[in-house]
Design a protein around this nucleic acid. Structure first.
Lengths: 182, 182
DNA sequence: CCGGTATTTAAATGGGTATTAAAATAGGTT
DNA sequence: AACCTATTTTAATACCCATTTAAATACCGG
């Protein structure tokens, strides 16, 4: 079984009501808010190391966490800091994981040109001049895997850690069956 | 019967004689006049929210009104302001509605691809890559209707509110007869 | 050798593109 | 002479861009 490392979890939620981003920008140290560049306010935490995007609607996006636990901690901290600044927010609704990015290693070098041909052109994109990785789109689980010649890979688009596990298992099986791995 | 909302009325008239647009540009606060960009002077009213175009010939175009009533009010206000600035104008001739833009809702989602085929290619244009709406040109009344997948529509080119009503009724009937609505 | 390019994913939200009709008029191109 | 551009307004909606995060790795310039 390949070791899988979750590298980034993107999640969204809502603080319940409208937010005065201008006021929050002044209250939170280090907050970045340039509405003509991007409508969201960007606020980074050192621990857990994350970047949270706050929107006028009260919707929130948290990126950079390594687990759902870190996402919860980060959003709680940000909410607490906003309230400490005297800005009222309602209780936070459920947090939805929108994307999980993970990395793994197949354990051996692989031939991307051979893989591109055997996996079929419909689900594979491989243009080494443009990007060194081979892009492989799986339907089940619905994720995208970037395969590299080193045997290392990146899985993105997953909503649950199990999706990553399933994708890596599936690819490992397919490559072994085609004699392209091991 | 579908609810129809008139969104924009474009009308034209004449103030009777030649106008010194340069002088009017100075007299009317907020007036925009850049002859090398466009020959007309642009003047906006907050109430009714409209944009009136004044030309050297004395011809006038009023856009943005939601009714013929608003068009009359807007043109009267503009004429009064010009006269208040000491610029003489003759009595205004009749106002002609040139275009009415309206929106409505068929009440249910529709399949634009199926509609494009059944209504016939001569009067229909549908290129979702270019624009999400289907363009349907009616001969009677002579208007153009933009149909969207949501069932909402935009009718433009009408000269009377009754044209909009007739067009929406006609389209509703055609789609129902073809089993593409309801 | 370091930083930046390239790619993929997802959410949030503004702004922009696209289309349609109509009038007015001054300029340019066939 | 007949078009075309310019501008104003307005709805509908799908797409684009903007930003944030992270990994993998080949290539670029300084």
């Amino acid at each position: 079984m390949a070791v899988i490392k979750i590298e980034n979890v993107v999640a969204s939620t809502s603080l319940g009501g409208e937010l005065d981003l201008q006021a929050i920008a002044l209250a939170l140290d280090g907050a970045e808010y340039e509405p003509e560049q991007f409508p969201g306010l960007i606020y980074r935490l050192k621990e857990p190391k994350t970047a949270t995007l706050l929107f006028r609607s009260g919707k929130v996006v948290c990126t950079g966490a390594k687990s759902l636990e870190q996402v919860k901690t980060a959003i709680s901290k940000v909410a607490k800091q906003i309230e400490a600044a005297g800005i009222v927010i309602k209780g936070e609704p459920k947090i939805e994981v929108q994307n999980i990015v993970a990395s793994s290693d197949l354990g051996a070098k692989i031939n991307l040109n051979a893989i591109a041909i055997s996996l079929g052109l419909e689900k594979v994109e491989y243009e080494p001049e443009q990007f060194p990785g081979l892009v492989y789109r799986l339907d089940v689980p619905k994720v995208v895997v970037l395969l590299f010649g080193s045997g290392k890979l990146v899985c993105t688009g997953a909503r649950k850690p199990e999706d990553v596990e399933a994708a890596v298992d599936k690819i490992t099986e397919e490559l072994k069956a085609a004699g392209l791995l091991k």
